[in-house]
Amino acid sequence: MTTLAHRQPWRLGPRGERWFDATLATALLLPALAIPFTDAGWAGFGLAVAQLVPLFWRRHHAVLAYAVVATASAAQAVLLDTPLWSQVAFPVAVYSVARFASTGRGLAALGVGLCGAVVAAIRWVLGFGGDLEADPVVAYTTTIATIVVSAWALGALARTRRAYVDALVERSEQIRRDAEQQVALAAADERARIAREMHDVVAHGLSTIVVQADGARYAAPQDPTVAADALATISATGREALVEMRRMLGLLRSEDPTGTRPQPGLADLAGLVAGDHVAATLPSPASGVPDGVALTTYRVVQEALTNVRRHAGPDAHARVEVAVGDAVTVLVEDDGRGASAPADGRGLGLLGMRERVTAHGGTLEAGPRPGGGWRVAARMPL
């Protein structure tokens, strides 16, 4: 995913920043080497060094560097009455405070700079042998103050822009993290859905095969034809399970969300409840039930009948009632062993049924039936 962090404006790295500051301070310091040969003499050279050298650390110690530069500039106003080349360090220091320090410290540096502009203007007018009149003082003060204010404004603007870009980068990173979290949640939901489908298909088919195989094994010595019928049922059930498994794999491989075949629904309930020990009352397949609710109805009946075959006992009878009104109601109950049955596998199936029904705003109840057996009741509003 492309983020603002990959498109943000070009920036110097930490090493580049150090080289830039060293180059700037050195470039400003080199012309100061000629100051001892001017009227300012060695005193002027010392002041120039004190003003320019702190610029090497202006980025990471902006306030301290500014304090040294301002002190040296104040000393210049006392010791010399003419300007020095090194005074260019003052607006650079003001910019650095406005750029790298807090807003309050930047405003304090600006205030000191404006006061210094007045003092420097007076010293320059007197140093150049002029009379202390308003016009030259105002002219010098305006020029110096404009430079100081410009340096402060550029620094404050750069700091504000940096904070804005950092906020955008942080926001884009948060959006990326949220998107990744949503993808992970969607993947987890999809895995849970596939697990429910696999459980419903495999558990139903295998439980039928196991029941028929056990019956055939016990009945074969007395009546081989029963074993033949059981083997036929096993074969049909196995084929049906393979067909459903292939359909599910087709759904996973297909880019078409409808898959290779329609999902089972109300029209498929008749084949699901076929059997000598199941009494069923089913609605019309053309009842206008949404596909998702119809699939959930099918899976609830399928899982409930699977549990009947696995836990209720060989002689248990089941009753299935599915009705469609302002809601789809499902009732599956048996007269088998009920709560005394082994719990292996039942918990996962019930959890899957409850998740499916809850996803459609419905409710599901499962538990022992009065008078014996087990009862599963679900209701999904339309």
Rank of each mutant, 00 (worst) to 15 (best):
S254G: 06
A188S: 14
L185F: 11
A195M: 01
T208F: 03
G271D: 14
G292Q: 09
V201M: 11
A220H: 06
V278T: 10
T208G: 15
Y218F: 10
A270P: 00
Q212W: 07
G250W: 02
G215I: 00
S284I: 05
L251M: 14
L272Q: 13
Y218K: 13
T225R: 10
A186K: 09
G238N: 03
P283Y: 01
A195Q: 07
V202C: 03
L185Y: 10
V211L: 15
I194K: 03
L295G: 05
V183T: 10
I234H: 04
A294M: 11
A280Y: 02
I209K: 03
G259S: 12
A220T: 02
A216R: 04
A213R: 07
A219K: 01
Q222N: 05
A186Q: 14
L252F: 04
A230G: 02
E244W: 05
A230N: 05
H199S: 14
Q212F: 04
E197F: 10
V293M: 11
G250C: 07
A219Q: 03
V289K: 02
P264D: 09
E244D: 14
R246V: 07
Q182M: 14
G271M: 12
T296A: 15
V278R: 01
L295M: 11
A203N: 11
S287Q: 01
G215W: 00
Q222P: 00
L252S: 02
V183I: 13
Q181M: 12
M198W: 13
P283M: 06
